[in-house]
């Protein structure tokens, strides 16, 4: 297990849990970061942060701080 921000560009993972305080946790879940959901890291901004994730048919950009609170299981080597 690792957190979402540790993915490499192009890497895919499945959400395991969101370990954040409210209201951040609820909002991340409502944006689609629900356990079981597949997420792919599409690109990183020029200075390495924030990053764009593809999930549930949309592209969502999160800062490292939020991505570090989402635990995932990597789906590729």
């Amino acid at each position: 297990m690792q957190t979402l921000d540790a993915l490499v560009v192009g890497g895919r993972a499945q959400v395991v849990s969101v370990e954040a305080t409210e209201p951040i946790r609820g909002r991340l879940l409502d944006l689609g970061f629900v356990p079981g959901t597949e997420v792919r890291l599409r690109s990183r901004a020029p200075l390495g942060d924030p990053a764009v994730y593809e999930l549930r048919g949309s592209r969502m950009c999160l800062r490292r701080g939020e991505a570090q609170q989402i635990w995932v299981q990597r789906l590729d080597g």
Binding site: A20, T21, P23, I24, R27, L28, L31, P50, V52, S58, R59, M60, C61, L62, R63, G65, E66
Partner: peptide, 11 residues
């Protein structure tokens, strides 16, 4: 203020 999550959808 309150800690708000930062998120931004790229349509």
């Amino acid at each position: 203020g309150r800690g708000l999550p930062f998120y931004l959808e790229l349509p």
